[in-house]
Design a protein around this nucleic acid. Structure first.
Length: 877
RNA sequence: GGAGGCAUAGCUCAGUUGGUUAGAGUACUUGCUUGACAUGCAAGGGGUCACUAGUUCGAGUCUAGUUGUCUCCACCA
């Protein structure tokens, strides 16, 4: 059954309808056929913090292209959708809304009530995100949709936590961590972003006990001096080593601290003396451990000063800094203030300057996990596309430190550790423990939750049902391709790799396909603060999902950033419109029954242009398959584009018109069958990129399958390989192009037809092409002659093979002479270039024979052209 | 400080292992109510492929360096 194709391309009219149909038919679910090879992708779960942006649209488009291609290639494909709870990010959003709308903090509500709010938020945003994915055309299996905090994923998290704990790979430690005073939680190293900020170097005098002098230290953060427990110098530093062992008096505080020797201090940098604050600086922490120094924490969790700061207690760290510097100056301890730009760590979610401080947290011991993860990529078991991103990965993995996984948040997986206050026992358990196994007293669960990325790391197997041994897991793990941006290689990709290897004993995916960022038309990152973000939904409304997908996929090279602009989306929409209208043209001429139209004619009935287009399509199919296999989706799409527009529409349809319009002839039927065949093939090749329009047109054409989605992807077909016949049509195309160019130069109106005399050795080619020449080159009469010798006309030549094309009635004598002379000179240039090349012994001896032959053939062609032009010029006299 | 990307037409970008006269979109010029499409058709103009040196018969493509630009990682008190 065929559907009508609307007169105008209006994607809003059919996209939703088609998507609903696909879902209803269950096409997105994997084919249960066990003979088919599996192909699986898990979606990088979008955060439930908000809606999808262009980056997501690109990510999902690329995945859908791969999945749809594989599905049509006969794989049993599974694309698992889902969302991420995004711990800090989501909690911040909900807290913010609570504050603005109701003036409440999460503490006002309490943990349970607050979490209810977050779940409600999650529900509404998850729905919004899945709605957007559907608008985009994503062919994921919605019956398998997951969420990082759903029951199954939560079980996986507990399983992993307990297993790692039992293996000694998770431990609780008192260490220095990155603390966000705004979010009131610990952060992992990866969650800290360093930003350049202007600051100062304050040089401060630390008096030496029992002596007149002082030691000068420089600091960017004077407020931490309340926590100083030593000053360090380098033991090799001649300038300062005499100070080692002396005692200093901390100004203002009047506490005594020692001078110690540690080679962490760089000789020649600053004053050579470093104040050591083990509780507030990661390096100082290590120095402190080496020397057994006391850790004095001088701030509260919200970065206000505590009792150790004396009279500054209660002040914010920056207010304290200001007041302290003023006091130091007043009391003569401040030597100088130097402007100094430095890198300050900030919270990746809220931007607040993080405060390094010591705290009790949970950690994952990384070295044992990193080793096999490095190995897997090194030996090629997992590949990065483009390959260069593996360097990024190695750099991170080789220098990895233990991973701080506890967060002082409420939204997330609560750590499955249980404490007994009565006997002090601590148990880690997969199930909730309410009674202490040691003393029988009640137990309380750890308040902290896990880092969001702890659960994301398990995504490739938790979504397939792990820890249960499910059929999905058996069939679809490891997954095939992970599609993501380079910005989360460290956060996510690396952690999935070591998690998969550790818990599944097998890699989570074979290929990591990396794409770049989508930037705005000026090349800036799209961001909320700049307000330059483009909403994919708005684009879809205006131009259609297919145009959006096309704009994102076309010309996109793996790993490279791209710009999104009005021009791009318009070009994409224009292409869709072109395809629509070409299809409409084909459709309006189809009068025969579907069965007839669906079969390709016998080879003997095919004309030269039929063979040419079939052959060209064949090559296109091969190339598109190859390019997708190599993740060059941008190249593949570019090829489909130019074949569709330049080859099929601009040439083949135009060539076929003369036959099509000869109604009810066998020739017309042949042309229509070829048109249907090639157009259908184009639609199939294009379907993964532009799923909606291709389906809509497919349903209007005679079609064999219920949906284009489940039809077979075109491949190279030996049966329709007519490469040998292609030269013929290329000659005609060259001739038509040449005539058009001459006519344009001479300013000849299209309505003015001209007689054409051709002198050629390819007589039958031109005889057959007579109707085309009339139609496409405004030829009134075609004369194929042995020689042309009319005194009232001139000749022109093309390099398509010994060809004169006199336009007897219309040529401008003088202009033609000038043009031919220019042509001749250009041709001479090429001849001398090639002669030089071919007389180069090195080239002839070392270049591959095929290349040399190619150059020789070229030269022969140019020589022919030279003869033709010479003859033509002679006739001009 | 370490690593990497990018530099090709006015603009935005392709150019896969070195091998035709370096391509596309867009913009520009000229002509066109061509039996689907003006979101179109046809014909054009426009590039010392950042610079320098090297490898090679041959370099936009490989190597080294220079300049500009962007990003990631580390982080010095």
């Amino acid at each position: 059954m065929r559907e009508e194709l609307a007169k105008n391309y209006n994607p809003a009219e059919f996209e939703d309808r088609i998507y609903a149909k696909w879902v209803e038919k269950g096409y997105f679910k994997p084919d249960g056929d066990k003979k088919k090879k599996p192909f699986s992708i898990v979606i990088p779960p979008p955060n439930v913090t908000g809606q999808l942006h262009m980056g997501h649209a690109l990510d999902e488009t690329l995945q859908d292209i791969l999945v749809r291609t594989k599905r049509m290639q006969g794989y049993s494909t599974l694309w698992v959708p889902g969302t991420d709870h995004a711990g800090i990010a989501t909690q911040i959003k909900v807290e913010e809304r609570l504050r603005v709308d109701e003036g409440l903090s999460r503490y006002d509500l309490g943990r349970d009530k607050f979490l209810e709010r977050v779940w409600a938020w999650k529900d509404s945003y998850e729905e919004r995100i899945t709605g957007q994915l559907k608008k985009l055309g994503a062919s994921c299996d919605w019956s398998r949709q997951r969420f990082t905090m759903d029951e199954g994923c939560s079980r996986a998290v507990r399983e992993v936590f307990v297993n790692l704990y039992d293996k000694g790979l998770i431990y609780r430690g008192h260490r220095i961590i990155n603390w966000c005073p705004r979010c009131l939680t610990a952060l992992s190293d990866a969650e800290v972003e360093y930003k350049d900020m202007p600051g100062n170097f304050w040089h401060i005098k630390y008096p030496i006990k029992g002596e007149e002098g002082y030691v000068e230290v420089a600091t960017t953060r004077p407020e931490t001096m309340f926590g100083d427990t030593a000053v360090a110098v380098n033991p090799e530093d001649e300038a300062t080593k005499h100070l080692v062992g002396k005692t200093l008096i901390l100004p203002i505080v009047n506490r005594e601290i020692p001078v110690i020797a540690d080679d962490y201090v760089e000789i020649g940098f600053g004053t050579g003396c470093v104040k050591i604050t083990p509780a507030h600086d990661p390096n100082d922490f290590l120095v402190g451990q080496r020397h057994g120094l006391e850790q004095i924490k001088v701030m509260n969790d919200d970065a206000t000063m505590n009792a150790y700061a004396g009279k500054y207690e209660g002040m914010d760290r920056y207010a304290c800094r200001k007041a302290l510097v003023a006091d130091l100056e007043a009391e003569g301890f401040l030597v100088k203030t130097e402007p100094h730009d430095h890198n300050v760590g900030t919270c990746y979610r809220c931007g607040t300057t993080v405060e390094p401080l010591t705290s009790d947290q949970w950690f994952v011991k990384m070295k044992p996990l990193a080793a096999p993860a490095i190995e897997a990529v090194e030996c090629g078991n997992i590949n990065f596309v483009p390959e260069r991103f593996s360097k990024n990965y190695f750099n991170w993995m080789n220098n990895i430190l233990d991973w701080c996984i506890s967060r002082q948040l409420w939204w997330g997986h609560r750590i499955p550790a249980f404490y007994c206050d009565a006997c002090g026992a601590m148990e880690v358990s997969k199930t909730d423990l309410t009674v202490c196994p040691k003393c029988g007293a009640p137990m309380r669960q750890e308040e902290d939750v896990l880092d969001t990325w702890f659960s994301s790391a398990l995504w490739p197997f938790s979504t397939l049902g792990w820890p249960d041994k499910t059929d999905d897991l058996a069939r679809y793990y490891p997954t095939d391709t992970l599609v993501t941006g380079y910005d989360i290689i460290t956060f996510w990709v690396s952690r999935m790799i070591f998690s998969g290897l550790e818990h599944m004993g097998e890699k989570p995916f074979s290929t990591v396909f990396i794409h770049g960022l989508v930037r705005d038309a000026q090349g800036r990152k799209m961001s909320k603060s700049l307000g330059n973000g483009i909403d994919p939904l708005k684009i879809i409304e205006q131009y259609g999902a297919d145009a959006l997908r096309f704009a994102l996929a076309t010309g996109n090279a793996p790993g490279n950033d791209m710009r999104f602009s009005d021009e791009k989306i318009e070009a994409a929409r224009n292409f869709a419109n072109k395809l629509w209208n070409a299809s409409r043209f084909v459709l309006m001429n189809l009068t025969e029954d579907d069965e007839t139209l669906l079969t390709l004619p016998e080879e003997s009935a095919l004309t030269a242009e039929d063979k040419w287009i079939l052959s060209a399509f064949n090559k296109l199919a091969r190339s598109v398959n190859d390019n997708v296999e190599n993740y060059e989706v941008g190249v593949a799409l570019g090829e489909i584009y130019s074949f569709t527009w330049d080859t099929f529409c601009d040439w083949y349809i135009e060539m076929a018109k003369s036959r099509i319009f000869a109604k009810d002839t066998p020739e017309a039927l042949t042309a229509k069958r070829v048109l249907v065949h090639v157009l259908t093939g184009i639609l199939k090749l294009l379907h993964p990129y532009m799923p909606f329009i291709t389906e809509e047109i497919y349903q209007a054409l005679p079609h064999a399958d219920e949906s284009i989605m489940i039809s077979a992807y075109p491949t190279f077909d030996k049966e329709i390989d007519f490469s040998a016949d292609e030269e013929e049509i290329k000659r005609i195309i060259a001739c038509i192009t040449a005539i058009r160019a001459r006519r344009a130069e001479m300013n000849i109106a299209p309505s003015k037809k001209a007689k054409l005399y051709v002198v050629t050795k390819y007589k039958s080619t031109f005889e057959n092409a007579a109707p085309m020449l009339e139609k496409l080159a405004s030829v009134s009469e075609l004369h194929i002659v042995d020689s042309y010798d009319s005194s009232d006309a001139v000749a022109i030549a093309t390099d398509s093979g010994n060809l004169y094309i006199p336009l007897a009635d219309v040529i401008d004598f003088e202009k033609e002479r000038a043009r031919l002379t220019a042509e001749y000179e250009k041709n001479e240039g090429e001849i001398s270039r090639l002669e030089k090349k071919l007389s180069n012994e090195g080239f002839v001896a070392k270049a591959p024979a095929a290349v040399v032959e190619g150059e020789k053939a070229k030269l022969a062609k140019y020589l022919e052209t030279r003869a033709a032009i010479t003859e033509a010029l002679a006739k001009l006299k």
